[in-house]
Design a protein around this nucleic acid. Structure first.
Lengths: 203, 203
DNA sequence: AAAATATTTAATCATTTGATTAAATCAAAT
DNA sequence: ATTTGATTTAATCAAATGATTAAATATTTT
């Protein structure tokens, strides 16, 4: 009864890897069993079905993602600009470690939005975040551009995440290798906050 | 022998729709047959296999994409800045019509880069485009930032394409409906060129 | 009209795949 | 040592799926 716990975790780890790499539809439960060094029968014994296992993995993915954004956006001890710097640095580092997460997540969300959004914390609503609050204060005090803050967030997220999604295409078109690509993304940790600030400043 | 041509085209149109919406792995040849109002046997009679049909569709997708970028980037009659405006306007319009193309394309490219890149025109290499040429001239004359031009291209492409990829997520997090989202993207046709110009200008 | 070509129908294959079962083996707890 | 629970093995199901076939029907060409 008090088992190692490592078996269930081993299966989940393998599932995370295989699902992330191949997507739900292209993943065979046999692949996961093999990747976790465990028998197919045991996989079903523990997780009942492919879909159930997938849901568990996705839930964890989304929770983790959501939580780490919130932690930055809702920190009262950092300034608006510091948050931008932290977001860029934090995400680029994370995505260099796990480059396939975004395309996997977004592709699966597209296929089944309802189920996955049910897993999202309602409080993660960024409209009420401290980040947006600070934006509004800045806007009053410094007369920054009367720009929909969505644009700014969208630009930041786009410039951080999209290159990872388009990685194979970018590397093919530019001839960069993976290391050069990563270095370029590391450069962007400093550049993106600068660009965002320029966007905000009133001309 | 000289047949309507409409049957083969009907199948291809349906295949494009279904593949684009569900991805290769999740697409059933029966879905395509049904969607094209044609018999499964006929589909195989014409296209031999699912993979073959997919390759044909993808080839056309990639060629079309590649061609339309090149046409803008290599036009000698437009200025550097005009190209930026044209790219933003052209792509945002196109993506509002076909929002699922990018995620489909990038997901499949990730799964099978080699096959798909073989279809890409080598001359589409944007390093040698007139656009980059004009960038280098600008850099000399106006002393714009000594910035890797990849960053600029990447930012532009990111800010244009990413929102469409993240559409379901964005709408869920912000509460926008599809029309509001589209309007926001239309606003960006004017905004993105401005932002890009600001990035280029030496501070 | 006759011949040739295109399309449909329906049946059928062989594989793949998610899932289950029952018995065997292994490990840990009592 | 025995019992209990965890894991493996191997066999097997049923359904889904890509693909093929042969015969029937429709359409076009000659």
């Amino acid at each position: 009864m008090n088992k190692d716990k490592s078996t269930e975790e081993k299966i989940k780890d393998a599932a995370r890897r295989v699902f992330t790499q191949k997507g739900y539809a292209a993943t065979r439960t046999r692949d996961i069993a093999e990747a976790s060094g465990v028998n197919l029968a045991l996989l079903n014994y523990y997780f009942k079905s492919k879909e159930n296992l997938f849901d568990i993995i996705m839930l964890e993915n989304i929770r983790e993602f959501s939580h780490s954004v919130l932690a930055i956006l809702n920190n009262r001890d950092t300034s608006f600009y510091q948050k931008i710097e932290l977001l860029a640095a934090h995400y680029i580092d994370k995505l260099i470690q796990n480059p396939e997460i975004p395309i996997f997540l977004l592709a699966e969300v597209k296929d089944n939005p309802k189920k996955l959004f049910a897993a999202l914390d309602k409080r993660a609503d960024f409209k009420n975040s401290i980040f947006v609050q600070q934006w509004l204060e800045l806007k009053d005090i410094k007369k920054t551009a009367a720009l929909n803050p969505f644009h700014i967030i969208m630009n930041m997220v786009s410039m951080i995440i999209f290159p990872f999604i388009a990685n194979p295409m970018i590397r093919n078109r530019t001839g960069m290798n993976q290391e050069q690509f990563n270095n370029m993304m590391l450069e962007r940790k400093k550049l993106i906050p600068v660009w965002i600030t320029e966007m905000i400043q009133q001309k």
